[in-house]
Design a protein around this nucleic acid. Structure first.
Ligand code: MN
Ligand code: MN
Ligand code: ZN
Ligand code: ZN
Lengths: 138, 138
DNA sequence: GTATTAATGCACTTCCATTGCATGGTATTT
DNA sequence: AAATACCATGCAATGGAAGTGCATTAATAC
């Protein structure tokens, strides 16, 4: 996993054990995770470190934040070469009402949304809620 | 405002002074409000009462909850005869990055969103962020 | 190896949301 | 109208997530 170290270097952040672990954790999971998910996975680590690690990742566009309406912020790894900060790149998120998991639908981009005259759209958050493929028995 | 009393009766909730006041407050405002907005408007009233009043309103589909991504839950009156619980009736919300106000765009319904096979869409939350008409000087 | 700079750990804080329980008020029954 | 049942309110306390200050420790640069 030398790749991760290169990624960190390209973002000008130091390579630390904790950061590598958290990155791998996020990479393994195919779903968006909360801070307490990470806490539970690394219960020997300090909460603040986990918090600041994820905030650093966010700042450096290694992860993006997801507000799925549960009231708890979730995070997921950004796609390689994504532009999560640019509106046109935004994908939608799916929250399963059954298993409570939230996933990125990275190749489902958000359609152009019409707003009334005088309004300027800068950013769009779109969350679809329902039943995921695993839970629908597909 | 005898109408409000009839509305309450139709929802099987008692008519109380506080409920009437809060309802009127929401009706006057054209924007979504937080609980602390209501607290500030009625500083002699108890927070819990305000909280439970708005929760009752929500349960009875008198108001709907709005998650605009600020992390603080907002509320706005439902349209007369709305079906806020049904997907097809959902409108979008606009959050102004300048004045921080959030409004319902009640006649901007959310377009049909395609989800991958196996996924079942039950509900959609769509928040557009940008500059509102007042702030854009329209 | 030393200096510099950034990451970590611990304690503490703030803010919003939510609940338990006692009390007060409104509607319903007799 | 009095008694009863039911619901609304007020006060106090709690929980959970998010964020900050500061001392210590580890990673990079020289
Ligand atoms: Mn995503
Ligand atoms: Mn609305
Ligand atoms: Zn599911
Ligand atoms: Zn504005």
């Amino acid at each position: 996993m030398d790749n991760i170290e290169k990624l960190f270097a390209s973002k000008n952040i130091r390579v630390t054990a904790m950061r590598l672990l958290i990155y791998k954790f996020l990479a393994e999971k195919q779903i968006a995770v909360t801070l307490s998910d990470i806490e539970n996975a690394f219960d020997k680590a300090d909460r603040t470190t986990l918090y600041r690690t994820i905030k650093t990742f966010e700042e450096k566009v290694i992860v993006h934040q997801i507000d799925d309406g549960t009231g708890i912020t979730k995070y997921a790894l950004c796609e390689k070469g994504c532009n999560c900060d640019i509106e046109t790149d935004l994908h939608l998120h799916f929250h399963c009402n059954n298993c409570n998991e939230t996933i990125c639908l990275t190749d489902h981009k958000i359609p152009q949304i019409k707003v009334p005259e005088g309004f300027v759209s800068e950013n769009v958050n779109l969350v679809v809620k329902g039943i995921c493929d695993k839970c629908s028995g597909y």
